[in-house]
Design a protein around this nucleic acid. Structure first.
Lengths: 145, 145
DNA sequence: AGAATAATTGAGAATGAATCTCAATTATTC
DNA sequence: GAATAATTGAGATTCATTCTCAATTATTCT
């Protein structure tokens, strides 16, 4: 129970920050890990609600914040400016289709190193970045014909 | 009065979309153009409130939406996830200091063309993008010593 | 294991941004 | 200038998120 590396990492984060390991926090992480791809907070709340022992909205918010700070999830915004979380699985950037809303992940090493170079030229020390390209995905492009 | 190119552009947008040119809308644009760099909606509302004829919150929101759709401003999010507008002056990206919150604009041609190349490889047709690099700005780096 | 201490939870209240409602007002058209 | 359609303002409303605080629970210490 709660033995995969993500739980361990989260426990370590909690310990390192003088926070308690509670069933609620572990359960929220478990709900998170069940999501595939991107998810909204409301989805988690709804999922939790249909369980025997549901977790309060406040606690879900609080736990998500901790899980985010532990580096296990991160938030992005949809085309409609809606907050969406995703499980952190190594860095990548996003293409977002303005027609169908699809979120396409990509990673490009040249892009990463070019960014470092740009930061360097401004004496800026980067810690992380967000890059979103909006446009039309290949599926929607072909539909249009 | 209201003769600079931005007003003309906004009027054109309104006409093109069957919307009326009202003193309120022009005044909101005027408030926007008075801002330097980045601004929050609340700043505009406060600025408007201290005028002889103040404009309602609802109308400021409505006008900003129109001004944004006219392409004269665009919105970004601060480190604290707060919505911030900026006047569109040709495309650029952002470095955001996590210590002092400073927003540094930059533009890099290599970055732009690399992005096009990446989109091409995914058959994705880009229309615009957002790139934010978080980290520590040069001023804060030097303070730390 | 049990007591003491500090952190956490839940339920609902509170906040804050953004949107909506609708009657009164105003821009536009003819 | 009259008729028509769009807009405005004030306040109500919505929706996401945070806060409050008493009751509960995890952790620590012996």
């Amino acid at each position: 129970m709660y033995s995969s590396p993500e739980y361990r990492e989260f426990r370590d984060y909690l310990h390192a920050n003088g926070m308690n390991v509670t069933p609620e926090r572990m359960e929220v992480l478990s709900l998170v890990l069940k999501q595939k791809g991107h998810f909204r907070i409301e989805d988690l709340i709804r999922n939790s609600a249909r369980r025997k022992k549901s977790i309060s909205r406040a606690t879900i918010y609080r736990s998500l914040k901790a899980i985010e700070q532990a580096g296990l999830i991160k938030s992005i915004r949809s085309i409609h400016d809606e907050k969406i979380f995703e499980i952190v699985k190594g860095h990548h950037d996003h293409m977002i289709c303005e027609l169908c809303g699809a979120i396409i992940e990509f990673y490009d090493l040249d892009l990463e190193s070019l960014q470092d170079k740009i930061c360097d030229s401004q004496d800026f020390l980067p810690s992380r970045h967000v890059m979103k390209i909006f446009g039309t995905c290949s599926i929607c492009r072909n539909k249009k014909d």
